[in-house]
């Protein structure tokens, strides 16, 4: 599958948050690196179909972003998300599964599988409000995966994760990325270094680097700092 972003722009009254960005992604893990305020979240929200661009087009194998068919392919983890106060981890994932039109029996099975996968099966019936930030984030990752998405968009997925959780997350994403388009944003260079094979760098609403990344190219941290100097 090919996810194509074509001259996408988002303009607010007097500020251009995303400025005519074009790139395309295929199966595999892509890291979106950029400082806070670079426009990462705005870009990802448009790619998740929840924010209407001022201009440009986003398509997945010619399926436009604003269609239900696109959303059927999508898994999305927002940067900030809440939960209904009465929700347990299991309720949360099941609820999202229901909204994604997954048949109940299958949804329940999938929910338990995913909670197991993110290491929350022990606390599946505990209220989310009793969770740590990292645990809540893992619930978020589980809900994004519930429909076996072909396009997985994660906004700052490693925020709030402790080092152990971070490793687990990286392994999970590497696995998912084998047959899924994964795009995740971060401002932590080492997140990208370890799992992403494709790198996008963003500054002031524009993509300043779009290309492959592997460790042979040297020190990403240094490269990143240089680009942003």
């Amino acid at each position: 599958m090919k996810l194509a972003v074509d001259r996408i722009t988002k303009q607010y009254k007097n500020k251009i948050a995303v400025d005519r960005i074009s790139f395309s992604l295929s199966e595999g893990v892509t890291g979106l690196l950029g400082a806070n305020g670079a426009g990462k979240t705005t870009l990802l929200r448009m790619m998740a179909g929840i924010l209407e661009p001022t201009g440009g087009e986003i398509t997945a194998d010619d399926i436009p972003v604003q269609t239900e068919n696109y959303r059927a392919l999508l898994g999305y983890l927002p940067q900030d998300f809440g939960y209904y106060p009465e929700f347990t981890a299991r309720d949360f994932v099941r609820y999202v599964a229901a909204l994604k039109g997954i048949e109940k029996k299958k949804a329940w099975k999938k929910t338990d599988e995913l909670l197991e996968l993110v290491g929350l099966s022990e606390v599946a019936n505990k209220k989310i409000r009793t969770f740590s930030g990292g645990m809540k984030q893992r619930v978020g990752i589980a809900q994004a995966l519930v429909n076996d998405p072909k396009i997985l968009i994660l906004d700052e997925p490693t925020a709030g994760l402790d080092p152990k959780e971070r490793v687990r997350f990286r392994n999970l994403i590497a696995e998912v990325g084998k047959n899924t388009i994964v795009l995740f944003s971060t401002h932590i260079v080492s997140d990208v270094e370890h799992i992403a094979s494709h790198l996008l760098m963003m500054r002031d609403g524009q993509i300043i680097y779009d290309g492959k990344w592997d460790e042979s190219q040297g020190d990403l941290e240094k490269f990143y700092m240089e680009e942003f100097e």
């Binding site: 998740a48 239900e68 999305y76 900030d80 998300f81």
Partner: peptide, 21 residues
Amino acid sequence: RSTRFGMSEIEMATRFSLRSV
């Protein structure tokens, strides 16, 4: 409730639009 509890973005990215929810 969606906006109140910050669920709207996740709900919007599902099969149904938040509007229909």
